[in-house]
Amino acid sequence: MNGKQVWVTEEPLSPGEIISRVTRRDAGAINTFIGTVREFTKGKKTLYLHYEAYPAMAEKKLQQIADEIEKQWPGTTTVMAHRTGRLDITDIAVVIAVSTPHRDASYAASRYAIERIKEIVPIWKKEHWEDGEEWIGNQKETKPGVPTKEESR
C-alpha cells in the first residue's frame, strides 16, 4: 500500500496490514482499536453511513495525535487510518494500532488516540435510515466551537 503513518482513504481498511506496520523488535504489546458500522443506535436501524473528511487537515490532525502519543508514551509506534465515503454495516471506519514495549501503554495510547480523533479530526458521519438521514456531530458532547485541549492560534 503506502508507507504512511496516518491516512484518510475511500478504500477498505485492512487491520492485519496496519498491525504489521507497528510490529517491531522492541515492542511486546500491540493494541488495536477498530470502529465498525453498527446496525442499531438507540433502537434506530442504520442502513449505511457516509463519512466525509477535510482530507488534508484530517491527515495533519491524525499526525498531530500520533506525535502527541509518541511524546506522552515514549517508545510507542502509532499507525492510524480512517475511511471515508459510503460504509455499510460491519464495514471498518477507523483503525488505530499502537505498539509499545509493555501492555499498559498500549491500552492507554490506543484509548487516547480514539478519543482525540473524535475531538479534533475533521471527519463527519452522516447516518442513513429508512426514514431519513442526518449528519452526526458533537459525539463527545464538547462545547460547540471550542476545540477541546486544542491550542487556538
Binding site: 475533521p122 463527519w124 458521519k125 492560534r153
Partner: peptide, 24 residues
C-alpha cells in the same frame, strides 16, 4: 489549523468552517 476568534486572516488564507466532528 484551528484558529481562535481573534486570529487575523491574511491574503491567500484558506478558511474552513467545520461543524462538530463525528469521525471514528
Amino acid at each position: 489549523e484551528f484558529a481562535g476568534q481573534e486570529h487575523k486572516i491574511e491574503e491567500g488564507d484558506t478558511i474552513a468552517f467545520l461543524p462538530p466532528v463525528s469521525g471514528g
